[in-house]
Design a protein around this nucleic acid. Sequence first.
DNA 1: ACTTATGATTCACG
DNA 2: CGTGAATCATAAGT
Length: 447
Amino acid sequence: MEDGQRMYSQQGGLTNMSGNVLPQYNMGQDEPSDQRKQEIGDILQQIMTITDQSLDEAQARCRKHTLNCHRMKPALFSVLCEIKEKTVLSIRNSQEEEPPDPQLMRLDNMLIAEGVAGPEKGGGSSAAANATAAASGGQPDSAIEHSDYRAKLAQIRQIYHTELEKYEQDLDLSDGSEIKNSDYEAKLAQIRQVYQTEYGKYEQACNEFTTHVVNLLREQSRTRPIAPKEIERMVTIIRKKFAAIEMQLKQSTCEAVMILRSRFLDARRKRRNFSKQATELLNEYFYSHLSNPYPSEEAKEELARKCGITVSQVSNWFGNKRIRYKKNINKAQEEANMYAAKTAAAAAANVGSEGGAAGYNVGGGQAGMYMNLNGGDNYQSSDNSVGDNVQNQITPHSRSQNGSPHDPKPEDSTDSWCAGAFMQGLDGDGDNYDGSSDEPGLKRPKI
DNA sequence: ACTTATGATTCACG
DNA sequence: CGTGAATCATAAGT
């Protein structure tokens, strides 16, 4: 901005004018006289003096006024404008056509794709409307000083920086624990809101500032040779400067989204096994509720708390456990026995301890149902030679090593959630587990 | 290197 | 919405 100001006071200066202006001017007049030259010289002198002074001195007003009223002012003014246009402006004008910045377009596209910026979100447009309103109501004619520009610019810079800080805070919040889907969406919404707020502020500031500058230039055009074209040009210069800020805003927004996204995907992808203890607890619950391994919400919460995992992880675990239990009952049975024994031991050891797993229903005599199914074949082979194996497994072999007193829910165990599994669980095709068709990246969201 | 175990995700269903 | 089923991606085991 200051460049612009300087430009007008210096390049608009008079170095090349004495060469060009005067002859042109004189051609309009028939008889150039020494006196006239003298007058012009005086005027130029005055102009130079004023240019050297700072504009906000009260004294300058007086001179400006004098200059304004001079009879030759209009002519001089137009000539000066013309010259400026020819010399200064023409140089820059050529490169002025701005092709839409590809970088900015990329950023825009991404923001739209991520739902951060979008036509329908409303925040931006209304803010823009506000900004326009505010801008149009801007100072009408009061002389605006340099300090105002600086203040404005500083304000904008500050807005930008506070906005950057917000992003950083925003992102700092998110490391440490894992990011869930809802977290991701919440954070994205947060980013969107910050972005739109800041974009609104940006637009408003930009419009206000532009209006200020335009007003100032109009004001100054009474004393300085400033053509409307120059004002236009100034506006485009300002827009460009602001566009840089806009670009940074968008870029940092994009970065924020990218970081958030990558963290989210990382959290999604990285699989951490639960602690041994957690698995232990979950298995205890599962096998002690084998007839109905569907923990209530409360039970899930308690398990989650005890295991140091989230409720949805508990849900995942049970979901996986149930399905996998059904898929290979043989092996699962052994495990069940293990836990049954453990539970029994625990029950024997501490009579009154209410401790773990919300009181297993150490019920009656159904234990054998689950414990004795193991026909001895390992689960991989049984998977493959299906049909008769199923029959075999259903018949209780009673070769099992234990008659432990544990057992879940006597009432419905026979036809419980997995009863059907005995019949059909190991059905037709042997390749149940992972018939993977290994299609990379078909359904996964790519970054 | 290959297989198995396991937590998580996705999709369809009721 | 919770669940079953299939599947993915990685950890763990060989």
